[in-house]
């Protein structure tokens, strides 16, 4: 990930975009687990945060 940073912008655009897509997917997956996944344990643990960040909860 950090390598793509140090590369000059224009010369290695595709690997920069790969990093972008990877990070975006990781973020979306994190949000899905923390905000949307409905396993009972996850739901109970995340309950207050889900309400307080406006995720559809129940």
């Amino acid at each position: 990930m950090t390598n793509t940073q140090t590369a000059p912008r224009a010369s290695d655009k595709s690997s920069a975009l790969t990093a972008v897509v990877f990070l975006a997917l990781l973020g979306v997956a994190t949000l899905f687990v923390a905000g949307h996944a409905q396993s009972a344990a996850l739901h109970d643990a995340a309950h207050d945060v889900r309400h307080a960040t406006g995720f559809p909860c129940h």
Partner: peptide
């Protein structure tokens, strides 16, 4: 913990 997780997810996006 989940606040940190949620905001880390936002931060990644």
């Amino acid at each position: 913990l989940f606040s940190i997780l949620v905001y880390t997810g936002y931060a990644m996006v």
